[in-house]
Design a protein around this nucleic acid. Structure first.
Lengths: 334, 334
DNA sequence: CTGAAAGCGCTTACAG
DNA sequence: CTGAAAGCGCTTACAG
């Protein structure tokens, strides 16, 4: 079998505890003793057994990450960054996909696999705040996004409303007056969709442009959802000269559909998205969008979660953090 | 603390072993006994401690997945599918990014974290076969992709050469004669790049078109790599009427760069990629590419790895599996 | 069919 | 500064 701490202790002529002390950087060890132990470790090629360590210590140094779909570009980029950030802090990330199904979101929260993590980064798309609070268990949970806002929940988010308002204002400044919104219900006011829609409405109001619910088209936040939503508007004969996809995937799908149907972008219709995924720089035309501070979101959510795990952050109320955003003006809406 | 098996045993009036038997679906238990145990489990809300189970059994029911970058669309889509497939078989996937750096690839292979997995899916981009063989350790490793071909290594791959040949033949049939290749060195013959380049050359040969090394441009397999590679060709004044991006990201980046510079696609230059990522359907123009059987790759690699773990697959030589491919003709190269 | 015991490889009070 | 002992919560031979 593998080399154990016992083997190391025997080889170094010390007790188990002393080996453990060396391994855990305990301060008060005689240098000579420490050296003997380290030599024995090197010679035997000893490697700590992580499972045994977890069983005894109750710590795993893993963080869970629950998101709807890792194949969605925004989540893929976010997950990649979260993993890099966590690694720098000595943690690994275990990803789970919920498919944006309420049963799976609840399942992820109650999954026995949470035993293998010290805390959870959770992006609930359908679960309500109360349900999260009552099922989150005893380990720290930090929410990403904003479907859910509960005073008792930690949350790291982006400036959805302000960024959406800035995007819409940009379209209005370019002379657009009938701006379709893709990915929301007309009356929606909660969650990322609702907040972004609010921002859109504020910008309209500021410009004295009336809100037309006929311009709001629901759709899955994917490329095919954007294509279908814009196709629906065209087929219903709703006139528009701008499109705001509530995320880049929606906007890119919509842009494709417009171009296929011979509608020129941006001449006939200007298009903007939200997220600034890498693809936005390389679409044709390139996509005007907003960069929601993904690095900051990754940094702060990992930091907050680890602080909760370590007990460095002990506020009973939820901590709320919000990243800054940057408008990215490109060719789809110059 | 949490409810343990001991608590359950006491509540049910049986021994620890009997509880364990019930939990592990041991066959020969008196129905009444099983019932009493199950009632106790339900009543106490007992949940098995996965760490303790792993420590004792040596199994974790986790698979490692090492890839270069989770934010790359092909890998994001692959990882998503591998996770779904593994879950159906009772396994979870722990992802690690190597950044395509040899040190990180080696690090992933030797990472203590491998203790937490029963086997590894590994996509080496720079490591050689010998290095993998000598550092893979004792647990099963299945390779994805083909930078590496060693008779002693399990490998699940795609038909790189045949698919590349079919794509190139399609461009040739459309009358293109000077087809640039992005993402390879002119003399490359190993790895995905080499195999795809071989396919390209076979198709040229079949058509009696001479191979021109000046048409082969290296570049990172990303959108920006494709844009830079095609810009280089244009600036060097190399004439071409077709572009084969060795993956979709390269092709999409190149297409963007061409369009920005006023080169019409497909009129002036036809563009094809490789992978059939979701984005390929929604670019403008949509991208002609090849779907390399990702579902099949996910299914077979997970299946093979689990068979190795369970000892159901015991061949000493590496098992090699190859998924089928489908050409996707779209507007960038009709 | 079920039980009592050992042990997976660590960390953690408790002594000294 | 270091040691001997207990124990985290399971599974696994070994008996019977």
């Amino acid at each position: 079998m593998a080399v154990t701490m016992n083997d190391v202790a025997r080889a170094a002529g010390v007790s188990l505890k002393t080996v453990s002390n060396v391994l855990n950087d305990y301060e008060f060890i005689r240098p000579a003793t420490r050296q003997r132990v380290q030599d024995a470790i090197a010679e035997l090629g000893y490697e700590a057994n992580l499972t045994a360590r977890s069983l005894r210590s109750g710590k795993t140094h893993m963080l869970g990450l629950v998101l709807s779909d890792l194949a969605a570009p925004y989540y893929a980029e976010l997950a990649s960054r979260l993993m890099t950030t966590a690694e720098r802090r000595g943690y690994r990330v275990l990803v789970e996909q919920s498919g944006a199904l309420e049963a799976n979101e609840l399942g992820a929260l109650q999954d026995p696999l949470r035993q293998l993590t010290d805390g959870l980064l959770f992006t609930p798309l359908v679960m309500g705040a109360d349900a999260v609070v009552s099922h989150r268990g005893t380990k720290p949970v930090v929410l990403l996004g904003e479907h859910i806002l509960g005073p008792r929940l930690d949350l790291v988010t982006m400036r959805n409303q302000d960024a959406a308002q800035a995007l819409t204002a940009h379209l209005l400044a370019g002379g657009r007056r009938r701006i379709a919104v893709l990915g929301a219900q007309p009356g929606e006011s909660a969650g990322s969709a609702g907040l972004r829609l609010n921002g859109y409405r504020s910008a309209l109001e500021d410009a004295g442009v009336p809100f037309d619910p006929a311009l709001v088209a629901p759709g899955e936040w994917r490329r095919d959802g954007g294509a279908a939503a814009v196709a629906g508007l065209l087929e219903r004969g709703v006139p528009f000269d701008g499109v705001f996809g509530l995320n880049d995937a929606l906007a890119l799908g919509a842009m494709h559909e417009l171009l296929v149907r011979g509608v020129k972008v941006p001449r006939d219709v200007a298009v903007v998205g939200f997220d600034d995924i890498d693809e936005a720089r390389f679409s044709s035309p390139s996509l005007t969008t907003v960069a929601p501070g993904m690095d900051e979101i990754a940094e702060r959510s990992i930091g907050l979660l680890i602080d909760r795990i370590d007990g460095l952050e002990a506020r009973v109320d939820g901590v709320h953090a919000e990243a800054g955003f940057v408008l990215k003006i490109r060719d789809s809406a110059p």
